[in-house]
Computed example of a mutant assay.
Amino acid sequence: MRSKHIILAATAAIVSGLFSLNASAHALWLENDAKAIKLYFGEYSENLRETSPGRLDGIVEPAATVIDAAGKENPVKPIRENGYFAIPGNTTGNAVLVQALKQPIREPQGENPGPVSKRFLYARFGKGGSLPLDIENTGDLLRLSFMGKPAAKTEIIVIAPNGWEKHLTTDEKGEVSFSLPESGLYVIEAKYEHKNPGEFEGKPYAIEIHKVTLSVYK
């Protein structure tokens, strides 16, 4: 009987670990490898980076803005490589904002299909400028906003360098405190669904799904 309890406890621990390392849906995020800033698409928690040819080609004409220390914004066009988009120009010490606004309509799938949706993907590195759905980092506080207004009671996921995830929820001000326990790159992501019917490339949709990441190095 004791061995049975040990097995059950071990199983529960494994399941708990799996939930802690559970993969998030695909997103864009930025990484700085000292030589350049690169835009990736995949699942950071799973160390999954899509390639071209492949699912990276599903990111349609992303637009980037490089913001220097004086706050000057310089629009640039990311260059698609085999496993990422290269952000051109002098990005050393500068902030980078990315928007992928031309993603195709997502048709409902499965036995219980949801409404037709349109995705809007964003990524941020550094401070300055603004995105439609944006995460600001003030050191020990994250602030989430949508169209300049606080995104209250919305989930934020902090993904550590080892893939571990911590799920947080913003307060009425769109804020939540956080800490980074170890060194490395943290990707912080949030999703915001907006019931705003529209049309893209001749196809109607009922819901906008906005997703943003903030890349933070410790």
Rank of each mutant, 00 (worst) to 15 (best):
P150A: 04
A64M: 01
T11S: 12
S177V: 00
S52W: 01
S20G: 15
S16L: 15
N22I: 08
E175W: 02
A206F: 04
S117M: 13
L39K: 10
L21Y: 14
E43F: 09
I135G: 07
H210M: 07
G128P: 02
R143L: 12
N82L: 09
N47S: 10
H167V: 11
E182A: 13
M1H: 08
G110Q: 09
A12E: 05
A13Q: 07
E189R: 14
Y192K: 09
E50H: 07
P75L: 02
N82T: 15
P78Q: 02
N32S: 12
K218G: 06
F200G: 04
Y122G: 03
R49E: 13
K4T: 08
R2F: 14
V66E: 12
D57R: 09
G163T: 07
S177N: 12
N196V: 11
E172Y: 01
R106T: 08
V60Y: 10
E111D: 13
I157D: 08
A100Y: 04
E50C: 01
P161H: 05
L185W: 09
P62L: 03
G42S: 06
L18R: 05
P62Y: 03
S20V: 15
A100N: 04
H26I: 06
K72N: 15
L8D: 15
I59R: 04
N82F: 12
A64V: 07
N94T: 11
A190V: 04
P75N: 10
Y205P: 09
E199F: 11
G139W: 01
G139A: 10
F125K: 12
H210E: 04
E81H: 14
D57N: 14
F41S: 08
G174W: 03
I105Y: 12
G89C: 00
T92H: 15
E182G: 01
P62N: 02
S183G: 11
N47D: 14
S20W: 15
G184M: 11
G110C: 06
I59M: 11
I159P: 03
L97H: 01
K4H: 12
G174L: 03
E43H: 15
P132T: 04
L142D: 09
F178C: 01
K173G: 08
P197N: 08
K77L: 06
G129K: 06
S24Q: 15
R119G: 08
L56N: 04
Q99K: 10
E46W: 10
W29H: 06
Y205Q: 02
G129Q: 00
K218C: 06
L141Y: 00
R119K: 07
R49A: 07
D171H: 00
H210I: 00
Y122A: 01
L142K: 01
G42V: 00
I6A: 14
A152G: 03
P132V: 02
E50F: 00
F19H: 01
N32L: 02
P75F: 08
V216K: 11
E155R: 11
F85K: 00
D68H: 06
A123L: 05
Y122V: 00
I105H: 09
T51G: 04
N94F: 12
V216T: 06
G148D: 04
F178W: 07
S52Q: 00
P53I: 12
E208V: 04
V212M: 04
S52A: 03
